[in-house]
Design a protein around this nucleic acid. Sequence first.
DNA 1: GTGTACATGTAAAGTGTTACATGATTTC
DNA 2: GAAATCATGTAACACTTTACATGTACAC
Lengths: 206, 206
Amino acid sequence: MTMNVRTLCLGILSLHEATGYEIRKMVEEGTFSHFIDASYGSIYPALAQLLKEGLVSVRTETAETGRPPRKVYTITRQGCAALEAALATDPARDKFKSEFLFQMLFMDRIDPAQLALTYDAYIAEQEAELARISCQSEELPADHPGARFVNDFGRTVLSAIITFLKQRREEMMEAFATSGKDGSATSGACRTAQTIRNQTIREEEE
Amino acid sequence: MTMNVRTLCLGILSLHEATGYEIRKMVEEGTFSHFIDASYGSIYPALAQLLKEGLVSVRTETAETGRPPRKVYTITRQGCAALEAALATDPARDKFKSEFLFQMLFMDRIDPAQLALTYDAYIAEQEAELARISCQSEELPADHPGARFVNDFGRTVLSAIITFLKQRREEMMEAFATSGKDGSATSGACRTAQTIRNQTIREEEE
DNA sequence: GTGTACATGTAAAGTGTTACATGATTTC
DNA sequence: GAAATCATGTAACACTTTACATGTACAC
């Protein structure tokens, strides 16, 4: 399956007609936001292309005011078929990119105070996200099983992450607070700031 | 933070020297594989650039045999500093892309038999991944807290996902098995294959 | 003998993001 | 009066993937 912005637009338009702007808002804040991302710079060209291919049609609502006219896109029969063809193919593997985890992998190279800040900020972010989609969960249409499934999936994962992070927090911080033992760390390929940092910490503790 | 392939290479090289080929293997199968991806086409150019900038150095091991000589890269002091500078910046938000969830969002447009296959294949994939990293967990160096943390994080999330998926499986399949009620579904923007499909199912049940 | 692992690298193509350009209206 | 929301769109840039090119050695 090729889940590019094209397919994404078709998917959203299969639920209800929308403008490019609205599609962007849906992927930014809506049911889709956990596992999808797309910006204006990709949505508008995608819609233009879909239109050219006849997979969507457009209706222009000219506002009386000075605003740019809204271009409301609607999926066509061919568009529906294209969406269903895409849905019938095998999904590609999930892709997860986390700079937070990358940093955690090298936690022994980060200043402990900084680490604590980053860690707590990440927890807060996950909690905010959980709150957001829990809120959405209440207003999901009952007749859309997919939306509910995806929402519950997201909540399950976020809850697990938050629990894990909170559980590990103290343990992790202690490990770095008591790191007077020092040098025990990695294979020596390069030790610089870490060593310096331990010295700094010791000075501060005196 | 800019966690591009450059930073990734620096990170891996900070653990131990490696060739481009080995780096690729590590992101494909190693501790990094959950939350990172990079192919040869991005790793080799990245290493070349890092070399030009003096962030890594290289040593060529010419094998007696006909193989291409291995180019073993080592991080330099500047490279270490660059890595630590990157680690000190705020991590960007996680990005998660899931074609599986996209398909699930539109589950009511997928042929139920196909859906079951995809669903089970996804569970199997997650289980395989969990098994793989659980296995790795045993051989993690005790002196690398980050690797353990990241590994445990991955196992926690995967376990939660697998439990969720198994729990929901029957419920979901039943919903589609009994979908003789039909038309109840989405806002009518476009209903094609779904309707046809329900008819087909009914025919098969007769 | 067929496939996989080892090993490096390039070029083209695809895909997407960021920043820009434009401008009214509403909220703080 | 500043900032956010609504609203569309383009162009330059960044990044990555895919496919290609090349070739040995070993395991089944």
